[in-house]
């Protein structure tokens, strides 16, 4: 990394250390509930759907579809202003959870971004400590 990374970084919390460690290993892991059978995002120990404590980590396929997007032309903070335009997205994962991300490998032009398009995860090592899961068109 030639230049210092200047955009916000996540501060992993005790319940999400595992998520970020796995991201660093280029794997996407979600929380799955054995009480109601649902997989959810973001990770927390007690299921937000049924409040069961019988939850565990499960590796995700990394595949999903585009649920919603925006093409950011005005960076929300100075750090993002050198990086516009970029595509923010909500992705419906195969496992049923929905997660926020950005798209890569897609022109930041509405003609090229289609809700429902098939996506797959890719990993961006933004610093030595942090890797961000992003999504690209499925191959």
């Amino acid at each position: 990394m030639a230049e210092a990374y200047d955009r916000p970084l996540p501060v992993p919390q005790p319940e999400s250390d595992f998520y970020w460690e796995k991201a660093k290993a280029h794997e996407l892991w979600l929380r799955h509930c054995n009480g109601c059978g649902r997989t959810y995002f973001y990770p927390r120990d007690i299921c937000p759907h049924c409040f069961s404590r019988e939850t565990e980590w499960a590796q995700a396929s990394g595949r999903g579809t585009l649920h919603a997007f925006g093409i950011v032309h005005r960076g929300p903070t100075p750090a993002f202003r050198d990086h516009v335009p970029y595509i923010v997205a909500l992705v419906d994962l195969e496992e049923g959870a929905r997660m926020p991300t950005t798209l890569v490998g897609v022109e930041p032009d509405p003609a090229h971004v289609r809700i429902g398009m098939a996506l797959e995860v890719t990993f961006d090592d933004v610093t030595e400590a942090i890797t961000l899961p992003r999504f690209r068109p499925a191959t």
């Binding site: 955009r7 916000p8 970084l9 996540p10 501060v11 992993p12 919390q13 999400s16 995002f41 973001y42 919603a68 997007f69 925006g70 950011v72 005005r74 960076g75 929300p76 903070t77 993002f80 990086h83 970029y86 923010v88 997205a89 909500l90 997660m99 926020p100 991300t101 950005t102 933004v126 942090i130 961000l132 992003r134």
Partner: peptide, 17 residues
């Protein structure tokens, strides 16, 4: 933790999605 690192910051971006 999960939105800001992607530049999903502030309401114009959230509401646009």
């Amino acid at each position: 933790q999960y939105e800001s690192p992607y530049g999903i910051i502030g309401q114009p971006i959230a509401y646009s999605m």
